[in-house]
Simulated assay, not measured.
Amino acid sequence: MVFGRKNKKVVPFRTSGELDAMAAAGAVVGRALVAVRAAAKPGVSTLELDEVAEQVIRDAGAVPSFKGYHGFPGSICSSVNDRVVHGIPVADEVLAEGDLVSIDCGAILEGWHGDSAWTFGVGEIIEADRLLSDATRLSMDAGIAAMVPGNRLTDISHAIELGTRAAEQEHGRSYGIVDGYGGHAIGREMHMDPFLANEGAPGRGPRLVVGSVLAIEPMLTLGTTQTKVLGDDWTVVTTDGTRAAHWEHTVAVTEDGPRILTPRPE
């Protein structure tokens, strides 16, 4: 039995054994992401990247979380350049030198979900794109650091926002925090309540307790905070055409500090 799922006063939490099971699923995701990045070279299609991820996931005895989810056709979301999230991998989208690629991946192992994303460049990328990805990672790291017992949900949101503002100060430019998208609780379902915004005032929402798990996933742009969904009813793009980045880890609260459940092999 998993306790806390129906208690809206706390973020859903898991036992230590269940966290280990989630970490096993998350490790599969991490390996898939590393394999995808290694394969992401000029001339390679996003559909080929999808095939790489699915092979890694299935070879581990797991199942892709995304494939068939509300009709989504891929095992990964491949979002290139101005695509923020939920890009569909296809054969005629071929990577080129300088592309900025965000890959979101999920896997189910023994009923438990792992969910993670990262952004990287294809070959050499311009400095602005590199800094955008770094800023998004720093924002995620700030959110992860706030995953401690006693904090409230929006303490994580506020930490992510402060991480973005700190990156802006460090980089000497502004970033758009994508409006309307964010993280979520996760366990035996991929998307669970509560929703985790990537900005906002602290001190609100359910409390974090030992074993609480959230997928933390900031999305930043080089310009707008606004997006639109393309005609495929999935792909989310920036309204001004500026590039976007997306980083995500599934993270648990423990007595010894935040535990990343989606580790990536070196």
Rank of each mutant, 00 (worst) to 15 (best):
R37E: 15
G183E: 05
L208E: 06
A197G: 12
N7F: 08
M192N: 06
E18P: 07
A96M: 11
R152K: 14
R264K: 13
A142F: 03
E97S: 12
L261S: 09
E217F: 03
T136A: 01
V10Y: 10
L220G: 01
Y69H: 11
L33H: 11
G257V: 11
I216Y: 00
K67C: 06
G223L: 10
T239Q: 11
A215M: 12
H246F: 14
D232K: 10
R58F: 06
E97G: 08
D115T: 07
L222C: 07
P64V: 11
A135S: 09
M147A: 04
L109A: 04
H249T: 07
E127S: 11
M190I: 13
V80E: 09
V11R: 02
P206F: 10
E51N: 13
S75V: 05
H171M: 00
A245C: 10
D115M: 07
D20N: 13
V11N: 07
G61R: 01
R204V: 04
H191G: 03
L196F: 03
I186S: 14
S102H: 02
R173Q: 14
T262Q: 04
R37C: 08
E97A: 13
D155V: 02
I156N: 09
V63L: 07
A32C: 10
H246T: 02
A24C: 06
G26C: 12
D256H: 15
W247M: 09
T242P: 01
L100E: 08
G182C: 04
V10E: 14
F3D: 11
F66A: 06
G143A: 03
V29N: 09
A146F: 01
Q226A: 13
G98M: 04
D115Q: 07
D20L: 13
L261I: 11
S79G: 08
T154E: 10
P64I: 08
A53W: 03
G17C: 04
R5Q: 15
K67Y: 10
G231P: 03
R5D: 09
K228M: 10
D50M: 08
E93R: 15
T262R: 01
G68A: 11
T225Q: 14
H184W: 09
K228F: 09
Q169W: 04
C77R: 08
G98Q: 04
L95Y: 09
D232A: 06
V251G: 02
E127L: 08
M192P: 06
W234S: 12
T262E: 00
G114Q: 05
S212G: 09
L100K: 00
T227Q: 09
R152C: 13
R259G: 02
L49G: 09
V34H: 07
H113Y: 14
T15Y: 09
T225R: 15
V148G: 07
M219D: 02
T154I: 07
D141F: 02
G121K: 02
A201R: 13
A38W: 06
V251M: 10
G111W: 12
I144N: 00
